[in-house]
Amino acid sequence: MHSKSTYGTIAVKTAVLLIAALLLFAPFLFQDVRALEVAARICIFIVLVASYDLLIGYTGIVSFAHTMFFGFGAYGAAIALRQMGPGWDAVAIGALAGVLVSLVVATGVGLLSLRVKAIFFAMITLATASVALVLASQLSQFTGGEDGITYRVPDLFKPATKLMVDETGKVARLFGVKLNGKLAAYYFVFFTSLALFLLMLRVVAAPLGSVLKAIRENEARAEAIGYRVVAYRTFVFCLSAAVASLAGTIYAVWLKYTGPDTTLSFAIMIDILLMVVIGGMGTMWGAVVGAVLMVMAQYYLRDLMGAAAETTANIPLLPDLLDPDRWLFWLGIIFILLVYFFPRGITGTIMQKGARL
């Protein structure tokens, strides 16, 4: 029988498993193009947010360069696919190039900057990310500039590809869903994202996770008992950068387009920060909850507000307040309420309250 101190953790893990099951069967449960786009984006952002949680939640490193590494992976795949054609070799070389560039930059920034105070490191990463964004816009012969790059992906992921055919020679269906390249592309996103997330779970469950928490709680004490704090911080910064780069490659393959707004934008960095805070820092499970809530709000809050405005059309003031154009205002209100009622994030607060029973 489980002790009461584990009830919060059990509740969080149950919710995460339910989300995983919904994402696994999303193409069959939600049979429209938009829903599949939302599910794929959730999968990718879970990985991106979890890799950032390794930094801010487990090690106490505040970085504003996470989207830069995400962009390196996306642009690596995009440039390789455009130059080499739609083959798996291009995807592999692009992913490898993105990871290598991310590791070189992360190592350089980490070794030069992680010795300084947190706020100075944050500013250095912000400056580095800004340089990457400017270079992506100006090196148009490689990156496509502001217009970005469009390219073809491996034939397996083309919507016209038939994974299975029926007796008439048409693409087969399973529960009404076409077994075509779009379905293959989604499951490529799902399973690669799942593998990366499980890898990060393994990292934080290993002794390394305890060392990172010790550094976060008291850097001087960790240094005093023999841990090389700068080396550990640089290592986790590089690991986080590599995972973010791979997430960028996955996103590039899914989207078939890579540009500054889709991978390097500072708005994406703000989204990642919000997802970490909403879900709960230093839990890893919080990445799942935060990514799901934030992406769902970005895609469906306007629709929900539009329906609410129509329903309350005869009530004074309410339709104006619920105008879909004010969705960002309401998203801000919801965020403030979540921070107030869940100060450690949703998963962090639930796990903490479960431990107090």
Rank of each mutant, 00 (worst) to 15 (best):
D32P: 00
A252Y: 04
R152F: 06
A224C: 14
G108W: 05
L81P: 00
Y58H: 07
V277Q: 03
G209H: 02
L239H: 07
Y52Q: 10
F157G: 04
L48I: 13
S193D: 12
R356F: 11
L301Q: 05
E217G: 08
L357W: 13
W88E: 10
Y52F: 13
L103A: 13
G60A: 14
V131N: 08
Y187M: 09
D323L: 02
F188D: 05
A267E: 14
E37G: 09
E219H: 14
Q352N: 08
T283M: 06
V177Q: 06
R326A: 03
W330K: 03
F188G: 07
M351A: 10
L114W: 05
G259W: 01
V276Q: 04
M305T: 01
S193A: 13
A231R: 14
V49Y: 04
Y7R: 13
H2N: 15
K182P: 00
A118C: 08
T107C: 09
I225D: 08
A118F: 02
Y299M: 03
K4S: 15
A106G: 08
M84N: 09
E219L: 10
G144F: 00
Y257R: 04
V109M: 08
Q138V: 00
A291S: 15
V288R: 06
T258V: 13
K162E: 13
W330I: 00
A20K: 04
D271G: 09
R356C: 10
P343S: 06
G8T: 14
A214Q: 07
W88M: 11
L114A: 06
Y340K: 15
N314I: 15
L212H: 04
F266A: 13
A224I: 10
L317P: 00
L255C: 07
D147N: 14
V116T: 12
F341N: 08
A205P: 07
P260W: 04
G87C: 06
L163H: 13
A184F: 01
A11H: 07
A77E: 01
S245G: 10
A291C: 10
Y299L: 01
L54E: 05
A172M: 07
M294A: 06
L24I: 08
G87D: 05
T150Y: 08
S130V: 00
F197R: 12
L338Q: 04
M351P: 10
F72G: 01
S137P: 02
G248H: 02
E146L: 13
D166W: 05
Y7S: 12
T9Q: 15
Q138D: 06
M200K: 10
A355G: 14
S3N: 15
A160G: 08
V33S: 02
A313R: 15
D53M: 03
F175A: 15
A127F: 05
S63N: 08
F28Q: 12
F197M: 10
L96I: 07
L322Q: 05
T258M: 09
A214H: 06
V288C: 14
G169I: 02
I56H: 02
F235M: 14
L317E: 05
R173F: 06
L156I: 05
R173H: 14
